[in-house]
């Protein structure tokens, strides 16, 4: 709910926002880029959701 609130509050503006969360995310809509960083055996695995 908080995530959706954040997304809806910046919708329509020219600005881009970066939200960092350690929890499971649920974003609706295609305007959101999701990048995940996972610590796998001491190495950070970075993946962008396509």
């Amino acid at each position: 709910m908080i995530a959706n609130l954040l997304v809806s509050s910046v919708k329509g503006s020219d600005a881009q926002y970066l939200a960092i969360t350690p929890s499971q995310v649920t974003f609706e809509g295609d305007d959101v880029h999701i990048i995940t960083v996972q610590n796998i055996e001491g190495t950070s695995a970075i993946r962008e959701v396509t």
């Binding site: 499971q24 695995a45 396509t50």
Partner: peptide, 16 residues
């Protein structure tokens, strides 16, 4: 940075 699909992340329970 690699890429991952939405479905894959849902399966891994990173995305809900």
């Amino acid at each position: 940075a690699g890429t991952v699909t939405r479905e894959e992340l849902i399966r891994q329970r990173i995305l809900a």
